[in-house]
């Protein structure tokens, strides 16, 4: 196999020091309206996501959260991001010196504890890994950041871990 071209690392000791450090917790509310809006946007037809009587008939406390829905972060006009709705300081990941970004993937793993409307989940995000590799498709190096966010319910039970992969590449920032 041909060796990948050499490239200069952009990862600093300061960036590496962020690995594993928990960010500020953020709270997400799981509500009936939130569940219905999410389910409708995906295109679900199963009444379990819309009809509380059906959810209860099937043994649940209330409407369950569809896969991928971990509640809606409580919005604060002072500190929440207008595009994503999450509060500043709660998201993991380092500022990349590369200017172009791509969402590389999402991995949602549930522990098996039910998540239903009425629950309040607390998320804590951490940067899990920082790797660099040469991308033949992009003809250049890329920085791969994996973040892991653990969600715990109001009873202190861990309900899910969400891993996100962020890719950055291309021209560098003027200040990076």
């Amino acid at each position: 196999m041909a060796e990948a071209p050499q490239f200069e690392s952009v990862v600093t000791d300061e960036m590496r020091a962020q690995i594993g450090v928990p960010r500020e917790p953020f709270v997400c509310e799981v509500t009936t309206t939130g569940v219905r809006m999410f389910a409708r946007a995906v295109g679900y037809t199963d009444p379990i996501y819309y009809d509380r009587a059906e959810a209860r008939r099937r043994g649940l406390r209330d409407l369950p959260a569809p896969p991928g829905y971990l509640g809606t972060p409580i919005f604060d006009p002072e500190s929440s991001d207008p595009t994503g709705g999450t509060r500043r300081g709660t998201q993991a990941g380092v500022r990349s010196p590369y200017t172009l970004v791509l969402n590389g993937g999402t991995d949602v793993e549930y522990t098996g504890v039910d998540i239903c409307a009425g629950d309040e989940l607390t998320g804590v995000a951490r940067l899990e890994s920082l790797t660099e590799r040469y991308s033949p498709a992009l003809a250049g190096p890329m920085l791969v950041q994996v973040t892991a966010t653990t969600y715990t319910n109001q009873q202190g039970e861990v309900v899910a871990t969400v891993r996100g992969t962020g890719l950055s590449y291309g021209p560098r920032r003027d200040d990076g």
Partner: peptide, 12 residues
């Protein structure tokens, strides 16, 4: 109706 989803992972 009787089972449940435990993990959904994908790359874009």
């Amino acid at each position: 109706p009787g089972g449940r989803v435990r993990r959904v992972a994908c790359s874009y």
